[in-house]
Simulated scan of single mutants.
Amino acid sequence: MYGIIFSIGLAGNGLVMLRYIYFNRLKTGTDYYMLNLAIADMVFLITLPFWAASIVRTWIFGKEFCKVIYGLYKMSFFSGMFLLMSVSVERYFAIVQAPSAHRHRSKTVWISKISSLGIWVLAFLLSVPEFIYSGVKEYNSEKNCVIYSDNIQSLNAGLKIAQMASGFLLPLIIMFFCYSMIIVTLLHARNFEKYKAIKVIIAIVIVFVVFQLPYNCVMLIKAFDNSTQCHTSKTIDFADDVTYSLACLRCCLNPFLYVIIGVKFRNDLCKFFKDLGCMSQEKFAKWSTAKPSKRSSFAMETDTTTTFSP
């Protein structure tokens, strides 16, 4: 599972990063959020082969590297959540507060740069416990990279609650509010693509909840689990493995939900392959779409902060 997620996620997020670099698309606030989201997903994906190797065999990479991988994994997790939240906030202002957003459009790029940097700093600070308390523990002659301390139960409980509140509940609440207001605005808009935009928004929220909520629930159960029964412990561990794999799978879906479904991205991708000589002019004309109209919905483009026209 980790191998599949790593391969697909690396390809999808790699194309996103390549597109922004090749076409110099870093011109709007959303562009910077999307690029940073791809970087966060890439950092997260890079940690998966090490966890896979540890599961197949044992942790052979040493104590210090355990801290690095654990810390990077958690930092990329938090940064990804906060960046998704930032995208929803920017879309809210661009669509719901369209007149105000248009007046302050020149500031959006500067704000996105500062906020992206702030997100990475905040993600690092929230990941400090992983850098401090992670290490290699030996169980039944097998070494594992885990978090441990003298009071592991209270430490785990405190970490899981804090991380779930800041890394899942807060982004979920803000995303739900922003996208709800966006849907209301789109329903009152004179735009023939508004229902497509609403479907995309609903898909984004559903994917976020379906792939993140189960893992966060299991994480919370593990934090307060005091059971000494072997069957209960195995059941929770199995649930942890399954839900964690689903949460990892979301990294593969981010490029498709937030960028690749955008018209501009598809056109850029076709042009990139045509420039490389991998696509003929006939196929380029067939697969690339017509230039979107100025009245295209912001939610459908996903890679522009053009003010929505009601």
Rank of each mutant, 00 (worst) to 15 (best):
N254P: 00
R250D: 07
L220Y: 11
I202G: 09
V242Y: 14
K74N: 00
K27F: 01
W59C: 10
L213I: 07
K74C: 00
A101S: 14
K107G: 02
K63V: 06
F44M: 14
A101E: 06
F168P: 06
N254V: 12
T302S: 14
F208G: 01
A165C: 13
E64D: 09
Y70N: 10
C252A: 15
C66F: 09
G277R: 11
T307R: 07
K107Q: 10
Y73M: 04
I132G: 01
Y179A: 02
Y22H: 13
H188F: 04
G118H: 09
S141K: 14
L37R: 05
S100Y: 12
D240I: 01
L18V: 09
Q153G: 00
V263T: 06
G167R: 13
V68Q: 00
A53R: 07
K283G: 01
F82W: 15
T305F: 06
I174K: 02
T289S: 09
K234W: 13
G167D: 04
S296G: 08
A52L: 12
F124E: 08
K194G: 06
C270K: 01
D31N: 14
S149L: 12
K113V: 06
G9P: 07
C278I: 05
L257Y: 06
I39E: 01
W287C: 02
F78P: 00
Y73F: 11
A223I: 09
I69E: 00
L18D: 08
A197Y: 05
W59F: 15
I261Y: 11
G118I: 06
W287T: 03
K67E: 01
K137C: 05
N13E: 01
T289N: 07
F177A: 04
N144T: 03
L45W: 10
M17N: 08
D240V: 00
I204V: 15
M164L: 05
P310Y: 07
V121W: 08
G262M: 11
M219F: 08
T235Y: 02
S297T: 15
F78Q: 01
Y244Q: 02
M75V: 00
I39L: 15
V96A: 05
S141T: 06
F284T: 01
M42T: 10
R91V: 07
K113S: 02
H231T: 10
A247H: 04
C278Q: 10
C66T: 04
N254R: 03
F298A: 11
F256W: 10
N36R: 03
V200I: 14
K196C: 05
I21L: 14
E64G: 02
H102K: 06
S115F: 12
Y73V: 00
V205Y: 09
R295Y: 05
M1D: 06
F65Y: 13
G135T: 07
G14E: 07
G62E: 06
A98E: 15
I114K: 09
Y33P: 03
M42I: 14
F93C: 08
G158A: 11
F78T: 03
I182M: 13
L83G: 09
V218P: 05
M300C: 12
A162N: 11
M164H: 09
W110S: 03
V96H: 09
L125N: 02
R25S: 08
F265V: 08
A123N: 12
G62R: 02
K283T: 07
V121S: 03
Y179V: 10
L169Y: 08
S297Y: 06
I183T: 12
